[in-house]
Design a protein around this nucleic acid. Structure first.
Length: 715
DNA sequence: AGCACGCCGACT
DNA sequence: GTCGGCGTGCTC
C-alpha cells in the first residue's frame, strides 16, 4: 500500500494560500504528524496535512519523492491546531507553510531522532517529579489573596459565560487576581480521558512577562510542580523556546505565558485563554503573516469549545483591559461578548485628578510650565515620586544649521536622524544608520549647528536643572532618572532600573510610553504627559483611542497604594500640557469615563463606515523607486476588474507611506475597503493569484516585495 | 528561503 | 580562455 501525503513546507514560493506538496509514503501518516521531507537539494521540516491513498490528479508520480521520516516520539499536532493554522492562512492571506512553520520553534528543524528522544525522556522525568496524589489542595494556593466584591462577582459570571468575556477593569482593580483564579479553576476541572488541562496567558510585551511569570509561578508551582509554567516569546534562546514548546505540546506545561507568537503554541488540553491588555497594538504582527493574536485567540477558543461541546466542556476566553479596543467594546455592545466591569481600585485608591495646563498662557518656550514644575517640587519635598512622559527618544529629534538650513536627514530614509548627546551620535530610528555628530555643518562648514526640539535625554537634563534647588525630605537634591529603549537595551538593565525606582532612589522618572505600562510603582503620586497634542490631530483615525489608552494607563501608575496615599493626605494627579485644553478627549479623560469615550468614538466610526462597522485591508508594495511601487499597486487595481464582489469593494488611490523611504526602499500602499468582512475576504482570496502575476509586470520592475495587511492598525 | 542555472566583466 | 557577479526561477 502506498500513500500520497500532502505536506506543508515553509518555502515562501509554495505559499499560495492553501498550497501543499505531495510526497510518497509507505505508511499512513496522521494529519499533524511532523515529518522530514526532501525539497530541492535540501531536507526540510513539514507538517502532514492530509494522507490520501491515491495520488492527486495533478501530481507527476515519477517526480514525487518519498517522505524521509516522521519525527519519532512527537505526538501529531491536533486537528484544532491545524484548523487554527488554516484559518490564519486564509484570513491573513499568507501561505499555510509560512504560518505553520513560523509557529513551530526553529530548533525543531534541526533535531535528530536521538536528541528528541533525550528531550522527551527528560520531560517525562520532570512530570513524575511533580507533586501529585497527595499534593496540597489547590484551593490553599489562593488563601491570603482575598477577593473584592467586584472580583468575586466577575469570577461567578465567568463560571457560566458562554461567550468571550471582556473584562473591563480599571488599572489597579485586580484583573490579575481574576486571571489567577480563573486559571486555577480551568486547571482543576477534570477532563475526560488522559488530558491534562492547560491555560494560555498572553501579554503584549516581553517586558511584562517576568512580573506576571513570577505571580503565576508563585501561585501554581507549589500545586502543579516546577515546570508547570513556561514562557514563549522572541526574547528566549532557541533552546529555551524549544523546551517550552515541547512542554506545551506534550502537556507537561499547564500554563503557557507569552507574547503574540504564543497564540500558535500547541496546547492539546487548552481550557482558558487570557489576553491581557487586549487593546494593545503589539498583538497585531507587522511583518510576515500580519495576524492579530487577539482575534486569533477568540477564534481558537471557539474551535476548542466546539470540539469540547460534546463533553459538556468549553474553552473560556478573557479579554482584559482598562481601555478596551473599540472592536471588542462594540462586540460587547452587540452582545457577542460578555462585558464584566470592575471599576473600583483595590484598596479604594482614587484615580488621579486631571490637571490641564493651557500652554497658550504659559511663558514662551517653557519645557515644563511653572505650575507643573511647582507641583513636582512639592511632591518631591514630601518624598513622593513623579513620572514624566515624552514620546521621543534621544536628545533632540533633529540637528540643524542656522546658516544654510542643513538638517540631519538620514541618507537612506526620508526621515531625520535623531541627536543622541550621550554618545554624540546621529541615529536613524528607522534604519539604524548611525554616525558621529559632525563638528561643523557638512554643507557649509558653519560651526553653529544646534539641536531642534526635545527628546527624553534632554528632558532628563533640563528637569534636573529646573529642580536643582528643591530638597527631598532627607535634605538631598532630587534624583532624576530616564527610562526608554536606549537605557533598557542591555539585558537586565530594565530590572535594575525598576529596582532603583521601587527602593525610592529615584524621585522623577522621565521616559517614553514604556514607563506607562504595567509596572507597579508604589510611591508615584504625580504623572505628567508633555506632548499629547501630537496625537490629537494625527491623520491616523485610531490616534485618539491610543492616546486615551496611554493616558489612562499612565494615570493608573499614580496613587496605586492607597495606604501610602493615606499617609500623604494629598490626592494623586495627572498633568497634561496642551495647546488645546478644550479638546473633548480631555473632558472624558477627566472623569475617567471610558464608556463615554468609546460611545463617542464608535459613533464617529459608524458615520464614516470605519472598522468595526466596515472592513479594511492594505495592499503594500516596497520597491527601488516610488514609481515602481505605485505602478505595481495600480496594475493590481486594474487587474481586479471582474473579481468577486469587486463592485462592493473600494480601492483607493496608491499613496506613498508617511515615511516614504526606509533603508533605501520606497514604500507605497493602497487601501481596500468593504462594508462586509466576508465579501472582502472573498475578494482578497480571488485577488491573490492576480497579485502574484502582477509582480512580473514590466512597469513594476524594481519591485522588492508586496504584502496584504488584513485589518490594518494604521492606514 | 536556499540553491541551481545562466549570461557578461577582470584575472591566471 | 576560466572564475565569479547576482538576476531569474524552481523546489512534490
Amino acid at each position: 500500500m502506498v500513500f500520497w501525503p500532502s505536506v506543508i513546507v515553509a518555502t515562501p514560493a509554495h505559499s499560495g494560500v492553501g498550497h501543499t506538496l505531495s510526497y510518497r509514503s509507505e505508511f499512513l501518516l496522521t494529519p499533524g504528524t511532523l515529518v522530514r521531507v526532501p525539497l530541492g537539494t535540501r531536507e526540510v521540516l513539514g507538517v502532514v496535512w492530509d494522507c490520501p491513498n491515491a495520488a492527486p490528479e495533478d501530481l507527476n508520480e515519477a517526480k514525487a519523492k518519498n517522505v524521509i521520516g516522521a519525527l519519532e516520539g512527537l505526538p501529531p499536532l491536533n486537528a484544532r491546531w491545524l484548523r487554527l493554522i488554516r484559518f490564519a492562512s486564509q484570513y491573513y492571506q499568507r501561505g499555510l507553510g509560512e504560518v505553520a512553520l513560523a509557529a513551530l520553534p526553529p530548533q525543531l528543524r534541526e533535531l535528530d531522532a536521538a536528541q528528541l528522544a533525550r528531550r522527551m525522556k527528560k520531560r517525562a522525568k520532570l512530570a513524575t517529579a511533580m507533586p501529585d496524589g497527595d499534593t496540597p489542595a489547590s484551593d490553599a494556593a489562593d488563601t491570603g489573596h482575598e477577593l473584592s466584591e467586584e472580583q468575586a462577582q466577575a469570577l461567578a459570571a465567568l463560571e457560566t459565560a458562554q461567550a468571550p468575556v471582556l473584562l473591563f477593569g480599571a488599572t489597579g482593580s485586580g484583573k490579575t487576581e481574576v486571571y489567577l483564579r480563573a486559571t486555577r479553576r480551568a486547571l482543576d476541572a477534570t477532563a475526560p480521558g488522559n488530558v491534562t488541562t492547560q491555560v494560555l496567558v498572553m501579554v503584549p510585551e516581553i517586558n511584562l512577562t517576568p512580573q506576571l511569570e513570577a505571580r503565576f509561578r508563585e501561585r501554581f508551582e507549589p500545586v502543579y510542580g516546577a515546570g508547570a509554567v513556561v514562557c514563549l516569546h522572541s526574547g528566549m534562546t532557541p533552546a529555551q523556546r524549544l523546551a517550552s514548546w515541547l512542554a506545551a505540546h506534550t502537556g507537561g506545561a499547564r500554563i503557557v505565558l507569552g507574547t503574540r507568537m504564543a497564540i500558535f503554541a500547541s496546547m492539546p488540553g487548552l481550557r482558558l485563554i487570557v489576553v491581557d491588555e487586549e487593546h494593545d497594538p503589539s498583538y497585531k504582527s507587522q511583518e510576515g503573516a500580519r495576524y492579530s493574536a487577539r482575534d486569533l485567540a477568540v477564534y481558537r477558543a471557539k474551535l476548542e469549545s466546539d470540539a469540547l461541546a460534546g463533553q459538556g466542556q468549553r474553552c473560556l476566553i478573557i479579554l482584559g483591559s482598562a481601555t478596551p479596543s473599540l472592536e471588542s467594546w462594540h462586540a460587547a455592545d452587540q452582545g457577542r461578548y460578555l462585558r464584566l466591569a470592575m471599576p473600583a481600585r483595590i484598596g479604594g485608591g482614587a484615580l488621579p485628578r486631571l490637571r490641564l495646563v493651557d500652554m497658550n498662557h504659559q511663558p514662551k518656550g517653557a519645557v515644563i510650565a511653572p505650575p507643573l514644575l511647582a507641583a513636582m517640587a512639592e511632591r518631591i519635598e514630601r518624598g513622593e515620586q513623579c513620572l514624566v512622559l515624552l514620546n521621543r527618544r534621544g536628545y533632540a529629534p533633529v540637528l540643524a544649521c542656522h546658516e544654510c538650513g542643513w538638517k540631519s536627514g538620514c541618507p537612506h530614509c526620508s526621515a531625520y536622524r535623531v541627536f543622541h548627546k550621550l554618545d554624540r551620535t546621529l541615529r536613524c530610528h528607522h534604519c539604524g544608520f548611525t554616525e558621529r555628530v559632525p563638528r561643523a555643518c557638512p554643507d557649509c562648514g558653519n560651526l553653529d549647528i544646534a539641536p531642534v526640539g526635545r527628546g527624553t535625554e534632554q528632558l532628563e537634563e533640563q528637569i534636573a536643572q529646573l529642580l536643582a534647588g528643591v530638597k527631598r525630605p532627607d535634605g538631598e537634591p532630587p534624583r532624576v532618572a530616564r527610562m526608554d529603549a536606549d537605557t533598557t537595551r542591555l539585558k537586565g538593565s530594565l530590572e535594575t532600573q525598576l529596582a532603583a525606582l521601587h527602593s525610592g532612589e529615584v524621585d522623577v522618572l522621565v521616559g517614553t510610553q514604556m514607563i506607562a505600562k504595567g509596572h507597579d510603582f508604589r510611591r508615584i503620586t504625580l504623572v505628567a504627559g508633555l506632548n499629547a497634542d501630537s496625537a490629537l490631530f494625527a491623520s491616523d483615525y485610531r490616534a485618539p483611542e491610543r492616546l486615551f489608552a496611554l493616558l489612562m494607563q499612565a494615570a493608573g501608575r499614580a496613587g496605586r497604594d492607597a495606604a501610602f496615599m493615606g499617609t500623604q493626605g494629598g490626592a494623586s494627579e495627572m498633568w497634561i500640557q496642551t495647546w488645546y485644553p478644550q479638546h473633548p478627549l480631555f473632558a472624558t479623560l477627566r472623569t475617567h469615563d471610558f464608556p463615554a469615550f468609546a460611545t463617542e468614538q464608535l459613533e464617529e466610526r459608524e458615520s464614516a463606515a470605519m472598522p468595526p462597522y466596515g472592513s479594511q485591508a492594505l495592499l503594500r508594495a516596497d520597491a527601488r523607486t516610488q514609481a515602481a511601487a505605485q505602478a505595481f499597486l495600480n496594475i493590481a487595481a486594474d487587474q481586479a476588474a471582474g473579481l468577486p464582489h469587486r463592485d462592493e469593494i473600494t480601492l483607493y488611490p496608491a499613496v506613498p507611506l508617511s515615511i516614504q523611504r526606509v533603508a533605501n526602499v520606497e514604500r507605497a500602499q493602497m487601501l481596500v475597503e468593504c462594508a462586509s468582512r466576508s465579501e472582502l475576504q472573498r475578494f482578497l482570496a480571488a485577488w491573490q493569484p492576480v497579485l502574484h502575476a502582477c509582480r512580473s509586470a514590466p512597469e513594476a520592475k524594481g519591485l522588492v516585495r508586496w504584502a496584504v495587511d488584513v485589518d490594518p492598525l494604521t492606514i
